[in-house]
Design a protein around this nucleic acid. Structure first.
Length: 499
RNA sequence: GGGCGCAUAGCUCAGUAGGUAGAGCAACGGCCUUUUAAGCCGUGGGUCGCAGGUUCGAUUCCUGCUGCGCUCACCA
C-alpha cells in the first residue's frame, strides 16, 4: 500500500479485503488469474434465454456489483461491458470450498462463473452457478449504487470524483459508459463518411516549431534534441494544406489540438478537431457537404431532433444560410459593411460593448456579431462572408466585395460548430496576411501567429483551388449525445492536479 | 481573472442559533437455500478540505488558501 493517509473507515475496509485476499490464496485460488474462457456476455444470456434455459453450460465473467447473501445460498449481479446479469450460488451445488470462496468476495471483485440459465420466481434470468472462479480481487471499495423501480439510491454523483476517477464513474454509472460508446461510434461514422467520399485519413505533427491555422494561445514545450522551443498544435490547417500541395485531393484528420485558454462547460484545453480539405471545390460546396455530414450522423444516431443548450435542434431540416452582414445589419439597424472604425466604436459605445483600442474593423464587427447575433442562431445556420481581418486563410470574395472573404461558420444552439473557407492559395496574398498577423503578434496580440515560412514556400509551389473545414468533434458529440458539458463527453477532462 | 455556491464516515446526505457529531448504504460478527434498495440481531468507523483569527471553548463565526461546480469575462 502507498503511504497515503486514509480515513480509518477506508483503511479498515482495505485491511479486511487484504485479509480476504490471503484467505483466498490459502483456499488454493489465484486471486489475479490469467485467462477465463467466456461463452457468453451478460447481454447475450439475457437475450437468448429460450435457447439456453436449463440445458446449456454458459461461462460468463464480470465485476460483482451487488450481493444478497442468505446463509448457504446467495444472489449477486455481475456486470460486463454488455450489461448486468444475476447469478445464484448454492453451497450444495458448488461445494464447501467454492462457497467459502464466494464468502470472501466483495463488491468490485471480478469473477467468472459457469452454470445453467434459469428464471427465478420473480422471473429474472439468472445463472445457477456450478463453478466459480475469482479472476481479480478488489481491495478498494467501489461506491454501492442501488436501484428500485427506476429510482437510484446513493448514486455516485460528486462531479470532481467522477472526473478524477472516471473508472469508478464508468463502473457504477452505466449511462456514462453509454455516452462514450456513442462518442466512439460518432467518431467512427465520421471516419466512414469521409472514407466513403474518397477522403484519405492522414496524421500530421502535433509538436510544431511554428503554430498556426487558428487564433489561439499555444502550449509551449521544449525539444531537447533540437535545443528549441516547440509548440503543441492549435489547428490542423497548415500541414493538411501542405498535403494538398503534395497532390492528395481529399484529406482529413481527426486529432487532438491544444489551446492554452480557459476551461468551462464548452471548452477543454485539449480537444478533438476534425479538419478536411478537398480540391477544386469552394465554400459553397463545403456548406452542402457539411450539412450532409451532420444529417449522416443524425441518421446513424437514429434521431432527427436533439436537445441541446436548452433547445430542440432539428438536424434533418434544411440548414439556414445567411450572410453575416445581413444578420448583423438587421440586428443593429444600420449598414455596418460600410462602417469605419470610428463608426463601429460609436455603435459599441451605444450598446455598452467593451473593445480594446487596437481592435480594427474586422475584430469590432466580430465582437458585435458575437454579442448580438450568435446567441440567436439556434437551429443550424451557416453564416457566410466574414471580414478579411479575422480570416487570414480565406480567399477574397469572388464578386469583389471589398474586405470580405469566402468563409462560413455553422452555428447550432448559439455555438460555433464548423468553420470553413474557400482556401486562400495566392502565395503573395497569403504572405502579406501572415506578415500582418506577425505585426499583430509583435504588438502584443497573444493569439496572433508567426510567419510560417515552410507553409508560404508550399503555397508558392501552388495549391489547387480548395475548400476546407474544421469541426470541433467534442461539440458534435455533445449535440448528438445531448450533454450539457464538454466534460461529460471527454473521459478525462482537464482538472487541476492535486497536491 | 471577477461574482455566487459547495467541501462532514468508503458512498449519499443530515446536523450543531459556538460546548469536538448523526442516518441510510458499504464494512465487521451472528442468523438465514429463489433474493433483488433482501431481511433480522449486534459492532466498529470522523484532525467536520487546509491554515490562521475571535473565544474559556470553533466542525459551526471571521480571514486567507486549496479543490470543485455554476456564472461573467476570455475562447475568430
Amino acid at each position: 500500500m502507498s503511504q497515503e493517509e486514509l480515513g480509518k473507515s477506508l483503511n479498515e475496509i482495505i485491511k479486511h479485503r487484504l485479509e480476504k485476499l490471503s484467505m483466498i490464496r490459502k483456499l488454493g485460488y489465484n486471486p489475479y488469474q490469467y485467462v477465463f474462457n467466456r461463452t457468453h456476455s451478460c447481454k447475450s444470456i439475457l437475450e437468448n434465454y429460450d435457447d439456453l434455459k436449463e440445458s446449456v453450460d454458459v461461462s460468463v465473467a464480470g465485476r460483482l456489483m451487488s450481493v444478497r447473501r442468505m446463509g448457504r445460498a446467495s444472489f449477486a449481479h455481475i456486470q460486463d461491458q454488455s450489461g448486468r446479469l444475476q447469478i445464484y450460488i448454492q453451497e450444495n451445488k458448488v461445494g464447501k470450498t467454492q462457497y467459502k470462496l464466494f464468502s470472501y468476495l466483495d463488491i468490485g471483485d471480478i469473477i467468472g462463473v459457469t452454470g445453467k440459465v434459469f428464471k427465478t420466481k420473480t422471473g429474472e434470468t439468472t445463472v445457477f452457478v456450478e463453478k466459480l472462479e475469482i479472476l481479480t480481487k478488489n481491495i478498494r471499495p467501489l461506491p454501492v449504487v442501488k436501484e428500485k423501480e427506476g429510482k437510484v439510491f446513493d448514486a455516485f454523483t460528486d462531479k470532481e470524483q467522477r472526473y478524477r476517477q472516471r473508472e469508478v464513474d464508468l463502473n457504477v454509472n452505466p449511462h456514462v459508459r453509454d455516452i462514450f460508446v456513442l462518442r466512439s461510434k460518432i467518431i467512427g461514422w465520421t471516419r466512414d463518411f469521409f472514407v466513403e467520399h474518397g477522403y484519405l485519413e492522414v496524421e500530421t505533427p502535433i509538436l510544431q516549431p511554428v503554430y498556426g491555422g487558428a487564433a489561439a494561445r499555444p502550449f509551449k514545450t521544449y525539444y531537447n534534441a533540437l535545443d528549441q522551443v516547440y509548440y503543441l498544435r492549435i489547428a490542423l490547417e497548415i500541414y493538411l494544406k501542405r498535403l494538398i500541395v503534395g497532390g492528395y485531393e481529399k484529406v482529413f484528420e481527426i486529432g487532438k489540438t491544444f489551446r492554452n485558454e480557459g476551461i468551462d462547460r464548452n471548452h477543454n484545453p485539449e480537444f478533438t478537431l476534425l479538419e478536411f480539405y478537398e480540391t477544386y471545390v469552394d465554400y459553397y460546396y463545403m456548406m452542402d457537404f457539411v450539412e450532409k455530414y451532420f444529417k449522416y450522423i443524425a441518421s446513424k444516431v437514429g434521431k432527427s431532433t436533439y436537445r441541446f443548450e436548452g433547445h430542440d435542434i432539428d438536424i434533418m431540416k434544411k440548414f439556414n444560410r445567411v450572410k453575416l452582414f445581413d444578420l448583423l445589419n438587421g440586428e443593429i439597424g444600420e449598414d455596418l459593411y460600410k462602417a469605419d472604425v470610428a463608426k463601429l466604436r460609436k455603435i459599441c459605445d451605444e450598446r455598452n460593448i467593451e473593445y480594446k483600442p487596437e481592435w480594427e474593423r474586422g475584430k469590432l464587427i466580430d465582437e458585435l456579431f458575437k454579442e448580438f447575433v450568435e446567441p440567436k442562431l439556434i437551429q443550424p445556420t451557416f453564416v457566410m462572408d466574414y471580414p478579411v481581418e479575422i480570416s487570414p486563410f480565406a480567399k477574397p470574395a469572388r464578386d469583389g466585395r471589398e474586405g470580405i472573404v469566402e468563409r462560413f461558420e455553422l452555428f447550432i444552439g448559439g455555438q460555433e460548430f464548423a468553420n470553413s473557407f474557400s482556401e486562400l492559395n495566392d502565395p503573395l496574398d497569403q504572405r502579406s496576411r501572415m506578415e500582418r498577423q506577425k505585426r499583430l503578434k509583435d504588438k502584443g496580440d497573444e493569439e496572433a501567429t508567426d510567419i510560417d515560412k515552410d507553409f508560404l514556400v508550399a503555397m508558392e509551389y501552388g495549391m489547387p483551388p480548395t475548400g476546407g473545414v474544421g469541426i470541433g468533434m467534442d461539440r458534435v458529440v455533445m449535440l448528438f449525445t445531448e450533454q450539457k458539458s464538454i466534460r461529460d463527453v471527454i473521459f478525462f477532462p482537464q482538472l487541476r492536479s492535486l497536491e
